[in-house]
Structures are given as C-alpha cells and as structure tokens.
Nucleic acid binder design. Structure first.
Lengths: 229, 229
DNA sequence: CAAATAGTGTCTTTCAGACAATATTGT
DNA sequence: ACAATATTGTCTGAAAGACACTATTTG
C-alpha cells in the first residue's frame, strides 16, 4: 500500500532490563555500546527487531547475541514502549522494553554489537551513566518489579529450581532494599496455597537448623499480597 | 546510517481503548474500518504514528481525527505493545496501545479514515467482531482497568468534576460487574485521605436524602486497596 | 554446651464484609 | 406518614506486624 510515501518509517527496537540478585543487591545486565553514538557508554542490551520475528523473540535474540545469556525458561515480560521524538539522535525509533529475571549469577559473554557485558548493582548507577533514555527504562523496570512481587510469585524467579524460604526472603529484601521479619515472612509465603511445594531434601550448609527446601508451585498470584509497607 | 539496507522497516501504529461507563455497563469506543482490509469491521480507533510526534501525541491525534473526541485532561496511559508477525496482513506493524477513560457520554463524530464511531457495551462484543488483534487489546485494557481501580484513584476519571459517592460506586460496579455494599464502600473511599474533597453543594435530584458532592483529591493511590474479591 | 539459623506462638491493631440502624429528603 | 436514598454503627473474622519463644543443627 506504499506506506513509505505517506509516512517515513519509524524504526522499532527492543531493549531488555535483565535483573538478578547479588550479594551487593539488585543488579542489572548492561553492555558497553560498540558503535557510535555514545560509543563505550553503558546501555541496556537490545537492538532492531527483525521483520520475521515477534517482539519477544527479538528481545531473546538480542540478549543472546549481545550477552550470551538465554533467559528462558525464566521470566520475560513486556515492560513498556518508549517513543519520544528525540530519544535516538540517529533516527526516529520506538523501543519496546522487556523485563527479564535471572535466578543465578549467569556469566555474560560479550557479543558482536557490544562489549563488556557485565552486571551492575542498580543502586550504584547514576542517571547520567546510561545511554539514550535507558535510565528511565531501568527505573521503570525496577519499579515494575518492586510492585509486582507484592502480588505475584515473580520473586521466585530469582531463585533456583529448589530454594529455601530464606533465599526467597533475601530476594525480596534485595529488591525492596529493606529488612523483612523472618518469622512473619515464613508464615506468609506458606499460607499462600500453591505458591511453594515442599520437597524432601533439606539445606544443611553452614551452622544452624537446616531449612526445608521448596519448588515453585502453580499459584499465579500471591494472595493476600505481601506489602512493601 | 542506512538502517533500511539492513532491516526492512517495521511500521508503528497506535490504537486506543477508550472506555466509559453507561447505564448498560462498561462501554468501549469503536470505529468501522473505512478501508481494506476488513472494510466495515469494528476496530479500535488508531493509525500510523508520525515522525514528529510522540506515541501519546499520536494516540491523541488519531482519536481526535477518527472520533472527534478529545481525551485530555482525563486519563490516558500506555497499555502495551502488540507485535505478532502476522497481526496485520498488509505489512509488519507494531501497535502501541493506549488506555483512555472518559467521564461523560461524549458523542463521537466519525472522521476521515473511519466511519460509524460509536460506543459498544464491552460484554456484548464477541471476540470475532473486532479487526486484527483488537479483541486481545481490548481484553488487556479492560483487565488493566479492573486491576488498577483496586489501588489507584483511576475510577474517579469515569466521573465528572463533581460527583457523589454513589456515582463513583456505580463506576466500580459497572467495571467489575458486580454489586458493592453501599455502606462499606462509603466508609472505604472516605477513609483514604486525599482521595475526595467535599464541596458545599449537595445532590438533590430524585427522592431520598441528598448526597454530598465531591471533587477528585490529590491522592495518587487508593490505600489500603479496594479489592474486587 | 554455645552459637546460629529455622520455624511457631501470641498479642495488638487494622480492616474487610455482612448487616442493622439512623438521618434526611421528596411525595 | 411513607418511600427512597445517604450515612453511620456494630459485630465477626482475617491478617499484618512486632516480638517472644521453641526446635534443630554445627562446632
């Protein structure tokens, strides 16, 4: 139908906010830009979406190409789209951002279009450190995460397949940035039926009474919610 | 930088889910498509975004052009983006969907690219009735609305500038599709400080004790939430 | 045994929800 | 007075949060 004649094209990119929990706190996966503009500046992994792939497929592909990380079968959800007219000086682009959660310390391997893929503690980043409007996207992603673990099992995606309630609580504490009462947390997550499946083994590392281990259950929501307060 | 040579362009459209509350229930603003494909089929108002306008500006413009409706200063927020490879048979398009809320029965005036702009009760629509993937977008928009009025003042956007608590409750009931206890609702919304500002006038239409009238307050969230249950 | 961590009990306060009671208007 | 609607009161059960307590392991 010749859209080009009426409307100069708007390019579509995907960017991914990949988060994990490290001892130092909540961390995000960033790459150093390997091309102008903003060569060498930290940025979210991402790139142009292809004509024959869906948005989420493009997000997975760019993440794999730039960081060597495979996000399936863990959490990957759409975050929002960013389309300010001047957000990219090269051309008019609209970026569809995704939010991903990784359970373990996956070691990134820098790819072709980017160098220096590495984890960065979110609280240590300043707004000016990221390329384009990626600081805004990161902030939106972290806020989405903080809100969503209140009423969904999303926080379990930060844990391995088998985990203790302490490990799950550590994820909550890293994400919200404050301490939670161990006893109340324990009761709370166990009171939500279908959230956790107890397994036979126990965790006998370190001193103290060994903790029970659990797997993710089938519950789709955390009800009643667990408020940040 | 010649992106075209590497990546055939992906077109960006905006579509708007405009909702209001009518006596028959929650209603959405739909247009009849004025061009092939799917000529005459019901669709969400929307169209291609221009190079010199932001996404939200595009949403406002398309809404005005196709229905004559101005959505400001009421609620307009981004919903999600839809980019399945085959969602539009003409070309690869990504649609950024917006959710808008109107307080009054605004009469649409069909525009150039569309005919028969009109309100349709959401529950009366079947999945097959809408063009492209617009049924999915509509369902996502309604679900977002149903979830969000639980913990934000969004439902007040369905009321005029001045309204009674009954009018606000009627909006909740239409959106959730079930009855709410008048007394408990009354106490609940008044207990949230900053949600409602009482004004001097009263509502003396019809029989019964006249209700107090209120304006929207400055509260950004409804806390504690008002659950659908 | 002490130290450390896991898990449970208890109490207070808040609040949702059901439903009754009172208040204020028009007819 | 009566009907209709607004607003407030009361009671019960659930649950959040603070914090004390018990349980089970290692060293």
């Amino acid at each position: 139908m010749g859209y080009e004649s009426k409307f100069p094209p708007v390019y579509v990119t995907v960017d991914v906010v990949v988060l994990t929990v490290r001892p130092e706190g909540l961390a995000v996966l960033l790459v150093e830009r390997g091309a102008e503009p903003q060569l060498g500046i930290l940025a979210l992994p991402g790139g142009f979406v292809r004509q024959d792939e869906s948005l989420v497929d493009g997000a997975r592909r760019e993440l794999l190409e730039e960081t060597g990380i495979v996000v399936e079968p863990t959490h990957l959800e759409q975050l929002a789209s960013y389309g300010a007219v001047d957000r990219d000086p090269r051309a008019r682009t609209v970026s569809v951002a995704y939010l991903a959660v990784l359970p373990r310390w996956a070691e990134p391997t820098p790819g072709t279009d980017a160098a220096g893929a590495a984890w960065h503690v979110v609280d240590d980043l300043t707004d000016l450190e990221l390329a384009f409007d990626h600081s805004v996207i990161l902030r939106d992603g972290v806020e989405r995460l903080r809100a969503k673990i209140e009423y969904t099992p999303l926080a379990t995606a930060f844990c391995e397949d088998e985990f203790t309630i302490r490990e799950l609580r550590t994820a909550f504490e890293a994400i919200w940035g404050h301490h939670l009462d161990a006893g109340n947390f324990h009761r709370k997550v166990l009171s939500c039926r279908g959230l956790l499946h107890e397994i036979a083994e126990r965790d006998s590392t370190g001193p103290g009474r060994p903790a029970r281990r659990y797997r993710r259950g089938s519950a789709a929501e955390l009800r009643p919610p667990l408020y940040r307060s």
